[in-house]
Design a protein around this nucleic acid. Structure first.
Length: 304
DNA sequence: CGCATTTGACCCGCGC
DNA sequence: GCGCGGGTCAAATGCG
């Protein structure tokens, strides 16, 4: 499947939904990548939206979703399977039409990864470039764009920029082709942290917001430190927090909707909750699996 | 004043 | 080589 294209992304959701009679917001999507930094091809990922306790059976499946190792930090154990995960059993999610949602994740396409291969040019190179091209603004830096792990998810929300506990600075906005909605670019305000995220609204369904994270936070979540205030637990350099607040148009009442719904389904007693300062701190004995642990409870992960 | 946002210019890769 | 689209920079501006 072509990647990095939101429309196709949506189409895939729609396709899934057509076959499963589930709503768009509860579709299960494939996560994929072809980049060389992600040595696995693609993985399925579950929709966090509908994690009503009633759906807990999804995670008791005998074929739990594969660990999406390809887009998670290298510290995570690799899975042995790397092809598309069969998600049919999980696809029969009941519709949750009006919920705020987390929908899926994916890695960026090869072309996009290739676009991330900017090289830091040294001064000689810059001078050379200026001579050859007569740059008007040769002082501009050429930044290396590292191959960063990315993941994205779709959120049904009235607000574009979801609060996820980190502080972000907007550094750009671009019109999206064939879409009336612009794409916004954010960078983590922590100077030592190169995490970026892109936020764009679906042209097909303006209620859906696609947020793509790139990179890994190298610092603690300033709002909700991992492990809680008293644990002294330092953030692993491979952590993300999912948005913790989904807003409605006139208020922001739906805080932590999926955390609330996840807990019974996941039988959470560990990192997913602790990473957000919920519950008591046991972080010191919790192996940090970075983003993965934030999104998929240990119980449903396949580890080696 | 410090920080965040806006926005046009610029850079780069890719396809033709 | 050129145009296009995506991504980034950085000056200007806004705001508390």
């Amino acid at each position: 499947m072509e990647m990095g294209n939101f429309k196709e992304f949506e189409e895939q959701i729609a396709s899934y939904n057509n076959t499963t009679s589930s709503s768009l917001s509860s579709g299960i999507l494939d996560m994929w990548n072809t980049s060389d930094y992600c040595d696995k091809s693609s993985l399925g990922f579950m929709d966090l939206l509908g994690f009503d306790p009633a759906y807990s059976f999804l995670f008791n499946s005998q074929s739990p979703p594969q660990q999406p190792s390809s887009v998670f930090p290298s510290s995570l154990p690799s899975t042995t399977t790397s092809t598309l995960v069969e998600t049919s059993e999980v696809l029969n999610l009941p519709a949750t039409p009006n919920s705020s949602s987390i929908s899926s994740s994916w890695a960026e396409p090869t072309s996009d990864d290739q676009a991330n291969k900017l090289v830091v040019k040294d001064e000689e190179e810059k001078e050379e470039l200026c001579k050859s091209k007569k740059q008007l603004k040769p002082q501009k830096k050429y930044q290396k764009r590292q191959k960063e792990r990315r993941f994205a998810f779709v959120t049904k929300s009235e607000v574009d920029h979801l609060e996820d506990g980190y502080r972000w600075r907007k550094y750009g906005q671009k019109a999206v082709k064939n879409s009336p909605f612009p794409r916004s670019y954010y960078r983590c305000t922590n100077t030592t942290c190169g995490v970026k995220k892109r936020v764009e609204r679906s042209s097909e369904d303006s209620t859906l917001v696609v947020t793509t994270y790139e990179g890994q936070h190298t610092h603690m979540n300033p709002v909700m430190p991992r492990g809680g205030v008293h644990s002294g637990y330092q953030a692993n350099a491979t952590t993300f927090n999912m948005p913790v607040q989904i807003s409605t148009q006139h208020n922001q009442l739906q805080q932590y909707p999926y955390l609330q719904s996840l807990q019974p389904a996941f039988n959470l007693d560990s990192s997913f909750v602790h990473s957000r300062g919920f519950g008591t701190s046991q972080a010191s004995r919790i192996e940090d699996h970075g983003l993965l642990q934030d999104m998929v409870p240990r119980d449903v992960r396949v580890e080696e």
